[in-house]
Amino acid sequence: MNTNADYSELENLARQGRWLAISTVAGSGAGHVGGPFSAMDILVALYFRVMKVRPEEPKWPERDRFILSKGHSSIGQYAVMALRGFLPIEELKTFDKGGSRLQGHPDVTRLPGLETSTGSLGQGLSVGVGMALGARMRREKFHTFVMIGDGELQEGMVWEALHIAPRYQLGNLTAILDWNGLQQFGWVLAINEQHRGDRRDPWSRIDLRGIFEKLGWRCLEINGHDFSEIIPALESAKAASDSDQPTMIVAHTIKGKGVHFTEGKHEWHSKVATKEELSIVANELGIAESAV
């Protein structure tokens, strides 16, 4: 589906977000690119269109909650939060530096606007279940969104949460699977292929949607880079807050999406762009050369 003109503002924000992420990582000399890029369009949709948030009052009790369970994509979340006004864009330069509020993995004790700490994979959905359950018990109306990665889905703890959310009928909980199809190292193919791991498709041949539905989740399957699919899916999930089924948005994404040489390249899971590469990135994303 072609992107709708209504979404040009979001598309522009996503380009800025990708630029801030890759240039920040380059400036700090460490960080992830592939994961933040695959998640970027959904992050922009959440923060700019779907979630009720008050950047000037990050602990506003009625805010919708978002947990980035795949915490290594933190720079993607920080970039979008900066664009949304939770922190100065200038502050991104402190990423990964000593004393920064912007830790390598999200640290709720440092940066207001985060809901919990993540990084050790597989844990965010459980916290989201607790928030959704608590909201039901308190009769609060906010919605809880949790983004998980497909590689992360190999962690057993995720499945503990996947089992319990439908049992408690948490319609006010949405999980978003950023299914970018690549993980850090993967499986060795054959002896004579040395150490080249097959990072493609952490869930090879497995019908995840079927599994989620059988577990009791309402599933929506989307192209995670097309706002005309992202926005309706997220809004549909939010509109189902009073229902008795949590929603799983299976978002098909591309790791490194947005720049031709990072797309689908496992090397860009965590890689620092050179000055020359940044020029190309800026050009492709339509960022002014002076920013490089």
């Binding site: 809901e115 919990t116 597989g122 844990q123 965010g124 959905l125 459980s126 916290v127 989201g128 279940v129 607790g130 928030m131 959704a132 359950l133 608590g134 909201a135 018990m137 308190r138 609060e140 809880t144 057993g156 703890m157 503990e160 949460a161 089992h163 319990i164 049992r167 408690y168």
Partner: peptide, 26 residues
């Protein structure tokens, strides 16, 4: 009974859910 939440034989999730509930003052 309404304040007793059975989390099943899944201790890691049990801990995570508690953290989410604690964020709301429980």
């Amino acid at each position: 009974p309404a304040k007793f939440l059975q989390m099943g034989i899944a201790e890691q999730n049990c801990v995570g859910v508690a953290v989410g509930l604690a964020s709301l003052g429980f």
